[in-house]
Design a protein around this nucleic acid. Structure first.
Lengths: 195, 195, 195, 195
DNA sequence: GCTTAAACGAGACGGTACGTCCAGTCTTACT
DNA sequence: AGTAAGACTGGACGTACCGTCTCGTTTAAGC
């Protein structure tokens, strides 16, 4: 006996229309002025159908984003040249943030998880987690191969890489460009070099 | 010729009541459920008086916070022991975020500046700027005294210090405690040490 | 294809509560200080529910009155004694206006139709029309039976009966009592008598 | 010791500007959307100056109208031909109502006096009274000269003349034109003819 | 193939808050 | 003292959405 609707009966037509309408409206009016009411109207769907399957506006948006990006896999560069790898990683990260659509939605999502614990959990586990873990493993393998000092904590290094970019991006304290990515990579490199 | 009402005529009674009510309501219901309507009611003020002087809820909250904290000056530790100074700085930062009231309001503010450019500017210039600049000068003086390598860029170091904490705090990817502050300080120290 | 919401879905509970609250509030505070907001609150109804079904405050009040009075049918006295009939008709009219509740609401309605054309139409067609027409037919039958001169225009006579009362009532130029009703009836009788 | 401001100090400039602005705005936006605020702004006058000298919006409008019309004296036609006099009187009355500006303002005034007793008194005494009295005297003189039956009450006849027009005008139950004026005059004539 | 229960579209409902407008009062500076 | 200016408290406006709640209407599973 479950309280959740039988997933078998779920209308795929409705689900896709909702996700599609959400993506469209996000682009048109932004997250702030996005309303469940508008999504339902655009998708040609009753509001109840949205409330039946998603607990909040944030959850719909999150699913819409995940659907859009599920093919774009996480890959952390890994060659013999650690310095080049770090530069490449950070330049890629910075470039991703530069896309206006991506920028807007990630800001919205970051905003939304501040007062939506289940969504925050989803974001951590399905979005952030895989990326941070992949990066941590790259650092750990760098230690194993002697390119990185064994004393450093890979988890800390991961945040040394992404934290400053996140800070600068979200608070817009300074431009986020390749020059900054390179400078940051160079400084992190100093922190992890052996000896 | 200005579009803003003559500040001379502004009622200080009303201004202070609004700021006070805002602080109270923030503590009681949180930023999300804070409404202009409720602030006006609590302050015994017409809504128009709020709209006359502030462009948005975020601006009121920002002013309320600034009023509360304007005496709490920014001070970056500066002794002969660089390592101890960094640990102290980061422990202090982490401790500040731990206060539930501070935590909630800074999250709200960070959220709000994402769709409120003038407020973002205020936050950068009046709140973040002084702190980041004071920290940058501490690093620069460390270079002048030879404790820090002359090749590092003080501005990048500032973000190496605060970025990871900000990332962990806002995204709640891991606990934010003294142990983490110390570990982070140690890693940044590796990045800036001479040689 | 209609622009009006499907009447089938309309909640009778809400409709009756609104009409009831309107009648109550009219009695308590008068038309002028009657607000949609207060009606909604008293009726335990969202404001939108009122705006969904009525275009204006006046329309709500009109419906409330019609609901109250729809059973009180229009009847124009008709016996063999024309003079007595006219006296009775005008005394009845005067008496109706004397009730404080009726007085206040009709004044309000008369006021409101001055700047609300659709409401004016409703008032004419659903409220005034039937009364004036019934009176006109009484006069016409008086002509048919020879009690009234065939040369007079029944429509003009109708206004000769109600016009002076309306004028004295609305402008309060003089007391509106049975003596006046009788005097007026006598004068109109002079105007319509055969010969 | 009076509570009323010393009339000596009253600024005629302000008074005239207020009355003028009121007339202009009445023509532009109508009575309903006329606000004290707008009058003050248009007249270049502080709101307090209006509140100091007039108790209500209606009073300002009434004064503005009286100022406009104080020269247009009341004159009731009086020749040897009673029928022609009555036709002329009613045609003139009907024609006055036909002017859009006059129509709008008198409707507004009639509306306003419904909930403004002092204004109602003013209207009765300074506007309606003289006209009704002049008409009554015309009827009385008609009796004295034998053109009108001595048994009729002149005051009732006055209302027999104006009441139907007022009714038809305010409620817009039928067109108000010369034909109606003539028909009405003819019927009233039947009521007052000797014998 | 028929039944039946769910999910569906539609949209009304009770509410909350929005941002605007104006009323009528109060305050300040100027004339 | 009267005035122009305009800030003040207060309160209603009409709108936008919220999340819940019926309504019939598909739709698809299981009898």
């Amino acid at each position: 006996m479950t309280v959740v609707p039988d997933p078998v009966r779920r209308s795929d037509r409705a689900r896709l229309a909702i996700l599609g309408a959400t993506v469209e409206l996000l682009a048109e009016v932004g997250y702030r002025r996005l309303s469940i009411e508008a999504i339902a109207a655009r998708a040609g769907v009753g509001k109840q159908t949205i409330y039946r399957w998603w607990p909040s506006k944030g959850a719909v948006v999150f699913d819409a984003l995940m659907a859009q990006q599920e093919e774009a896999g996480t890959d952390v560069p890994e060659t013999d040249d650690l310095a080049a790898d770090l530069r490449l990683l950070l330049r890629g990260t910075v470039a991703g943030m530069a896309d206006p659509g991506v920028d807007a939605t990630y800001r919205a999502l970051t905003t939304e998880v501040q007062h939506d614990a289940p969504l925050a959990r989803d974001m951590r586990e399905r979005m952030l987690g895989p990326l941070l873990e992949a990066t941590r493993q790259r650092i750990a393998r760098g230690q194993a191969s002697g390119q990185i000092d064994g004393a450093v904590d890979p988890a800390v290094v991961v945040e040394l890489l992404y934290g400053p970019i996140f800070h600068r991006w979200l608070l817009r304290t300074a431009p986020l460009d390749d020059a900054y990515a390179d400078a940051l990579a160079a400084h992190v490199l100093r922190a992890v070099r052996p000896g």
